[in-house]
């Protein structure tokens, strides 16, 4: 399994996600600069990491979505390659329109960093196959613009096709107003595209991948990807 992590100017979770993948899976991970026109041959997974690409100026992710490397990333996604956007990376994916909707300023307009509970809504994705349906996992969030929004008809279409993968919830797995940290529609924390190969989520699985940091719920996320790719090869 080969992973490429794209580094935009202002990305700041690039090294974290590189480390998490290497540490959990022991597989090859490469950093790719945003100015490149290509991603390494044979890349199985492309990750757009968290951070403040281009300072979050104009709109979060807007300028990163139009940087040189993105054409190769988009092609990778269109070919069915696995593509993951975490936090700012999710914002970039919506700006490229590879994923529907947009991420707006939090309901309470401030940055918020804290552990969050999420309900796994779908295990039928390459990113979540090793979780149980309805399982409650804990990943931290750290963002000021994570309020997932899209027009009502598109929201319905997204829900109808089972495109919601993670939802903010409480300890019992209930999706409530209180368990929703940013005001996202329907408590949506992460979604997948129709092809099932492109996932975007606001919470950070790479921050929940080691016991010493206080949680290991993210490990199954990386292992799911690994096992999906193994199966594809067979």
């Amino acid at each position: 399994m080969k992973t490429a992590v794209i580094i935009f100017p202002g990305s700041n979770c690039d090294q974290d996600v590189l480390y998490a993948v290497r540490n959990t899976l022991g597989t090859e991970v490469r950093a790719v600069w945003h100015g490149e026109r290509e991603i390494p041959d044979g890349t199985d997974l492309v990750i757009l990491p968290g951070g403040f690409s281009y300072g979050d100026y104009l709109r979060c992710g807007a300028m990163a979505a139009r940087s040189p490397v993105m054409q190769a990333v988009i092609d990778h996604g269109r070919r069915g390659g696995l593509l993951l956007g975490i936090c700012n990376g999710f914002q970039v994916l919506t700006e490229t329109r590879l994923l529907p909707g947009a991420l707006l300023t939090n309901r309470i307009p401030a940055f918020i960093c804290r552990p969050c509970l999420l309900r796994v809504e779908s295990t039928a994705t390459p990113f979540t196959s090793m979780y149980a349906e309805g399982q409650v996992v804990q990943f931290p969030i750290a963002h000021a613009d994570g309020r997932y929004t899209l027009p009502d008809d598109e929201l319905k279409a997204l829900e109808d096709r089972g495109g919601v993968v993670f939802r903010y919830c409480d300890g019992a797995g209930n999706v409530t107003e209180e368990s929703n940290p940013n005001g996202a529609m329907n408590g949506i924390a992460g979604i997948v595209n129709e092809g099932g190969n492109i996932l975007g989520l606001m919470p950070h699985p790479e921050r929940a991948s080691e016991a010493i940091l206080g949680g290991v719920d993210g490990c199954a996320f990386w292992r799911s990807i690994f096992s999906t790719l193994q199966e594809r090869r067979v």
Partner: peptide
């Protein structure tokens, strides 16, 4: 259309 505005929102 190219950059300054996100037509979705």
């Amino acid at each position: 259309d190219d950059l300054l505005v996100n037509g979705i929102i």
